[in-house]
Design a protein around this nucleic acid. Structure first.
Lengths: 163, 163
DNA sequence: AAAGATTGAGTTGTCAATCTTA
DNA sequence: TAAGATTGACAACTCAATCTTT
């Protein structure tokens, strides 16, 4: 995309064309989170990718406010609001007003929610492991190194835009 | 996500936890295509990420059917239908029924569409180059190697699911 | 039938405006 | 005022059903 054609016009010569192409392919194939599907079955349990992530974050953190969850997920507070409402309705999540500061909701997993999070987490782990096992050790090492740098670059870019 | 907690339960020990965490961060921060924004301004031109990609594909390919464009973009034919309609309305794209087989639309860029594609392409290239310049050479090399492998793995996974 | 494109319904997200508590 | 959460309007998808040409 925007790769081979007319590199003369931009004048500068972009040496990392290959890398850019790869990123685009990656984003498009998407498959990192089992793609295309906007929702997702594990053992008969249905959850959207964001719901899956949310359960994972809560399993890891114990309890979170909606804001905190939103920050971890990279989602708007409004999205988190509806997300949490949905999970609550399915009985996977509890929302209790904080005693100290009643503006906050404290989100936590129910017993069933923990069970679900655990099952889905295992499923995802397995899927990812299977994918990564198809890479050579050198590819895995390179990916780790490269993505670390890329995340750092994106983060500074993002932070700069906020200020 | 699903990383530190309770690795005992799955029994197998997942050695590539770091890599999985990185991928998740990447997907969430998203910023590869200038994130968060669901639409996107360049030089006063407004286009969604998919529209940007579509223009790029057409610039590269010359003409495409909607199916072909959808395949390259990883989008449903229905999405492509509305996408193409929108670009046509803005005067950036032409849709002509194929003479040989009138089921197909042959999509092509108008002169203005080519101009826009060129400008946006330059902008994107610049953005990506700027990002990648923040990486060390080793990180760039690793990223290229690792993503090549990952794209391959995702592709085989995807192909297997189709069959 | 089968293949390309379209249309309608539902999901997941954003952004902007509002409500509520501090 | 401002911070957390909610609501309403809209965008960009997917999926399933349909229309049109082969």
């Amino acid at each position: 995309l925007y790769g081979t054609t007319d590199s003369s016009k931009s004048g500068a010569a972009f040496p990392d064309d290959d890398l850019r192409r790869l990123l685009q392919q990656l984003v498009r194939t998407g498959g990192l989170l089992e793609p295309g599907h906007q929702s997702h079955d594990h053992d008969g349990l249905r959850a959207s990718p964001s719901e899956v992530f949310a359960l994972g974050e809560l399993l890891e953190a114990g309890t979170l406010s909606q804001q905190e969850l939103g920050a971890r997920l990279g989602l708007e507070k409004s999205t988190v609001s509806r997300l949490a409402a949905g999970l609550e309705q399915r009985g996977w999540l509890t929302r209790e007003r904080e005693a100290d500061d009643r503006r906050l909701f404290r989100l936590g997993l129910t017993d069933e929610g923990q069970h679900v999070a655990q099952r889905i987490g295992d499923h995802l782990r397995g899927h990812h492991t299977q994918l990564l096992n198809q890479l050579t050790p050198a590819e895995r090492a390179g990916l780790t190194l490269g993505l670390t740098g890329l995340v750092r670059a994106l983060k500074t870019h993002h932070d700069r835009a906020e200020a």
